[in-house]
């Protein structure tokens, strides 16, 4: 604990940005990230415990096990693939925060990406990681407030909206966000964007047409694994052969 705390003054002059990041910031984040995330595991049992203690409701254990196994079969792949896939953009602090606070693809990633763009830092650098941390923290405050307010008060107002707009908000905001973020990253690497889209489209069509049925459980994981790692490996190959270069002037 103490080795992180009394170093404030003594290294300020000499330390380069990367040293501060590696030697002070990252150890602190790893220590407190692990603690707070494990704390959340315990505290997330709150409603289940309240149902048990206050209302005396406890499902039979085979129902809990059955439900858990079903969830694990459907989403177990995502427990590992998602942190690994999003880590490059979220960084170390962002990974702790985003997987604790959820809504990653539609909220945390867009906020982190938009902040990196607005603050003009390069993705993958320590500076970008700091900006992501700040932006994701900001997004957590905002979304806790908005959702809390919404859950208590806005529900009735929203229900009064015409059916068309209620459906519209549910259906079309998310694809618009996905399109915008894809465009933002694709701007720097249009060729990689095209290849990634082609791979994902083929995989999604294979999935929907049932050609991936030979894989165990619902093979959505195959689509995301092939899309993410396929695009990454092809981009790497293209870079090695001088076909793409980091952000400069290469707009469509």
């Amino acid at each position: 604990m103490s080795e992180n705390q009394h170093s404030e003054g003594e290294m300020s002059g000499a330390a380069s940005g990367t040293d501060v990041y590696e030697d002070k910031f990252v150890p602190y984040i790893n220590k407190w990230g692990r603690r707070t995330n494990l704390l959340a595991v315990l505290l997330s049992l709150g409603p289940a415990v309240a149902l048990l203690t206050v209302f005396d409701i406890l499902p039979p254990s085979q129902a809990i096990v059955g439900a858990f196994v079903s969830v694990a079969l459907t989403f177990g792949w995502a427990w590992f693939i998602e942190p690994l896939s999003y880590y490059p953009v979220l960084g170390i602090p962002g990974t702790y925060m985003a997987f604790m606070s959820g809504n990653i693809s539609n909220l945390r990633l867009p906020c982190a990406a938009a902040a990196q763009e607005a603050s003009d830092v390069e993705t993958g650098t320590p500076q970008a990681s700091i900006i992501s941390t700040v932006a994701i923290a900001a997004s957590i405050f905002v979304n806790t407030l908005v959702l809390g307010f919404g859950a208590v008060a806005l529900v009735s107002a929203f229900q009064a909206l015409p059916e068309l707009w209620r459906n519209a908000l549910e259906s079309y905001l998310v694809p618009a966000v996905f399109g915008a973020i894809f465009a933002q990253f694709g701007r720097d690497y249009p060729k990689v964007a095209g290849i990634g889209f082609a791979i994902a489209l083929v995989m999604t069509l294979l999935l929907e047409l049932g050609y991936l049925a030979f894989l165990p459980s619902y093979p959505l994981y195959a689509v995301i694994v092939v899309s993410v790692f396929g695009t990454t490996l092809i981009a790497r190959w293209m870079w090695q052969h001088g076909m793409i270069s980091p952000p400069d002037e290469e707009n469509e």
Binding site: Y86, Y189, I199, F229, T232, W239, P246
Partner: peptide, 21 residues
């Protein structure tokens, strides 16, 4: 940076095609 951007593009391409279908 290229690998990071490519991973993002791959992930969002997957989200996109899911919505597009």
């Amino acid at each position: 940076p290229i690998v990071s951007a490519a991973a993002m593009l791959g992930a969002f391409a997957y989200f996109l095609t899911g919505e597009a279908t």
